[in-house]
């Protein structure tokens, strides 16, 4: 099933249609952070903790697709072997397939499937992320950001982006030098952030021997309870649904529109001007948008008919 989704198979969308009403029970955790900080290892240990409380757990682990060959090596599973034969643990590796943001669209749909299948907790592991890989917080109810000692000085900490999206910060490999400094820095920005909702917390872990993981699991669960109690979970789910829908809409519209544009003579004319450097790309883009798209938008808003050859052609279609 997930396989079909990954391949954009039309069959998958029929199945998705029937599963969608059952979606929305699971608690979804996102784990992100730079490559090599220990995301997979932490998840491996987290699964064990959640299993102790008898939650069923599904993991979607995303690894990068090669931009050159389109192939991928999916190695996250390698670190999650403790549960290789547990029936209530489902681990699925996915390749990012060129999607920026660390999460493939297929991963979003896979979450719907796994949720509808009745898994209590779904963990999404992003590709090793950079500073702006926060898309996972558009799916997850609770986002954990993993860092390691020595990576976070004062200015990194106040930069916008990934750090703003974290609910729980994890300083892994905390037996290494500098853990306390990193802890301190992270705690400081969290304290600065206004905390009318959930106050993010910082935890130290040493994933390979399991130190701190029990606490981490407990914090995720208490975040879950906290959100449920304060009606935040419903709000977040609503927001995610809207985001997902609008982003699909955007993709689809853009795809159709670009296709349409590429077939128009205006587009080709302007493109030629850009190529010959008669007009700069910014103005060119504006011109194309003005000529091709604005008639619709304009009409929608004002109900005013503008005579326009291209517009007419489009309407006939």
């Amino acid at each position: 099933m997930i396989r079909l989704i990954e391949e954009n198979d039309p069959k998958a969308f029929h199945l998705l249609q029937s599963l969608y009403p059952h979606f929305g029970k699971a608690f979804i955790i996102g784990i992100t952070g730079s490559p090599g900080v220990g995301k997979s290892t932490i998840i491996n240990k987290l699964i064990r903790e959640f299993r102790k409380s008898d939650f069923s757990v599904a993991v979607i682990a995303v690894d990068p697709t090669s931009p050159y060959s389109g192939g991928a090596i999916l190695g996250d599973r390698l670190r999650m072997q403790d549960h290789a034969t547990d029936e209530k643990v489902f681990i699925r590796s996915m390749a990012s397939r060129g999607r920026a943001g660390g999460v493939s669209r297929a991963a979003k749909d896979a979450v719907i499937v796994l949720d509808a299948m009745g898994y209590d907790i779904i963990i999404i592991e992003t590709v090793g992320a950079g500073q702006s890989e926060f898309e996972v917080s558009n799916i997850a109810h609770s986002t954990g950001i993993v860092s390691i000692p020595g990576t976070c000085d004062g200015i990194q900490a106040v930069k916008a982006g990934i750090l703003e999206t974290g609910d729980i910060f994890i300083v892994n490999k905390s037996d290494k030098d500098g853990a306390d400094v990193t802890m301190h820095q992270l705690t400081m920005i969290i304290d600065l952030a206004n905390g009318n909702n959930w106050k993010p917390c910082v935890l130290k872990t040493i994933a390979h021997d399991g130190t701190g993981i029990e606490e981490l699991a407990a914090v995720f669960l208490s975040h879950w309870k906290f959100m449920e109690k304060n009606n935040l979970l419903e709000a977040k789910k609503r927001e995610h649904k809207i985001n997902y829908f609008t982003s699909l809409l955007k993709d689809l519209t853009l795809e159709k529109l670009l296709l349409f544009m590429e077939n128009s003579s205006e587009y080709r004319e302007v493109l030629n001007k850009v190529l010959s450097q008669e007009i700069d790309p910014i103005h060119a883009a504006e011109q194309v948008v003005k000529e091709i798209i604005s008639p619709f938008v304009y009409e929608e808003q004002t109900h005013e008919k503008k005579p326009n050859g291209l517009h007419e052609l489009r309407v006939k279609k």
């Binding site: 060959s69 999916l74 599973r77």
Partner: peptide, 13 residues
């Protein structure tokens, strides 16, 4: 080598 040939490889070790 399989990755370079465009396949998705799950490496389980």
């Amino acid at each position: 080598a399989l990755r370079d040939a465009g396949m998705e490889v799950i490496y389980s070790g």
